[in-house]
Amino acid sequence: MEVQAKWEVLARWDELSEDQGKAVKHGDTPLVIFKQKDQATVMVNRCPHKGAPLHGGKIVNGEVVCPWHNFRFDTCTGVSPTNPGRCATMFPTKIENGFILADLANPFMNDQNAPEDQLNTSIGLEFNDYIKRKMKSAGKFNLELDLFDTQLLKKYQGFVELGDQVSMIVRPQTSIPLMEIINGEIKRRQFKSFSVNITYAGTPHHSPGYFGFWHINDVDEMYISVPGQEEGEDPYLIIVMNKPREEEKDTWAHFCLKCGTLLFERSHEIAKTGVPGIWASERKYLKEFNSDITLRTCKNCGEVHPLGYSIMKKWNTPEEEAARTTW
């Protein structure tokens, strides 16, 4: 229900640029102002995906590109063109006597079905949440794994739940690197034996030739690389992560391999469906992405993306499986 308007002066019109959002703060609320011709738009200065400051993003064709993960939002409507379910929180705005005013008492979203704007505060919340759940696994024996016992590791291939808090995946590791998108740039990582690597929550990551999409977790992932103990045996990659909580999701996405623009993404509520639901969601996502050439065509640079493909070879069409060798 709309409450009484509370118009606040935020900036002068002549301070704004169409090339860059202007960051302002009112009380404890970070805001960003965008200028498009004779119109000004005021939004919460946080990407609804992972809380990145939107004023640091580039403006391309009237859309602000999130500086962290390349999510795009229309600077006039706040709507994401690739996923309308993620909308920026906005405020009624007007221009009077050369000043920008916003009604900060009545925030809104242009998609009424969109989730509430959530800032990723996992660093601050994880410890408090841990205290609340304090030792739910108390009384159970601790699990000890001998990383040199590869016969034992083979028993843990696939998704394994360890207690109430942790999940683990063990898979043979080839020379495939891990690709990540960090600050809008694609980075490559090659795991060294006995190395420990962490991919933080919200980081798009992709293993060429292993899964044909970008995966975005709402939990951190820790990778431990262990060499094979027998001659000719592949090394193993152990992936350890917290079990997702009710509000956390897995996201499948595709980004332009040429310019990094987000092409398409869908989220899956893994805490509700468990591991079996992951595969159905992955298949549904790939079918939607692969069947529509407009989703695979970058609106920024025109590059056409190859088909996506599943981790499970048996679920791919011949065309999807052929794409495994291209990216």
Results as ranks from 00 to 15, higher is better:
L125I: 00
Q151W: 00
I169D: 02
E126D: 04
K140M: 07
Q165L: 08
I176C: 14
E126R: 12
S175D: 15
I176A: 15
G158E: 01
I123E: 14
V160Y: 09
K140G: 04
G158F: 09
E144M: 02
I123S: 12
V166A: 12
I123L: 14
Q151K: 04
K134S: 07
I176T: 15
I131D: 05
L152C: 10
F141Q: 01
V166C: 13
F141I: 00
K140P: 08
R171N: 02
K154Y: 06
D149F: 08
F127H: 13
P177E: 13
Q165P: 01
N142P: 09
K140L: 07
I131T: 04
F148C: 07
V166L: 14
G158L: 00
G163D: 06
P172M: 01
I131N: 02
S175F: 10
S175P: 07
G163M: 04
E161V: 08
Y156P: 02
I131G: 01
Q151Y: 01
G158M: 01
F148Y: 15
N128W: 14
M135H: 10
L145C: 06
R171A: 01
L145F: 03
I123W: 13
Q151N: 06
G158W: 11
T150S: 06
P172A: 02
K136D: 00
K155Y: 04
D146K: 11
Y156E: 06
F127M: 12
N128H: 14
I123R: 14
S167Q: 13
K154T: 07
I123P: 09
G139F: 01
V166F: 03
K154A: 09
L147Y: 10
V170R: 02
L153I: 15
V166Y: 04
I176H: 15
V160F: 11
Q165Y: 09
Y156T: 08
K134L: 09
G139D: 10
N128R: 13
F159A: 08
L145S: 07
L162N: 08
R171L: 02
D129G: 11
R133N: 11
I123V: 14
Q173E: 09
P172Q: 02
D164Q: 10
R133L: 06
K155Q: 11
K154V: 05
N128C: 13
T150M: 03
F127N: 12
T150C: 03
Y156N: 03
P172C: 00
P172D: 01
L147H: 12
N128A: 15
L153V: 14
M135V: 05
L147K: 09
S167P: 05
E144F: 06
K155F: 02
I176Y: 14
D164V: 06
L152Y: 08
P177I: 10
S175C: 12
N142C: 05
A138Y: 06
V166W: 04
I176Q: 15
L143G: 03
K140H: 02
D149E: 13
Y156H: 09
Q165D: 08
E126H: 10
L145K: 03
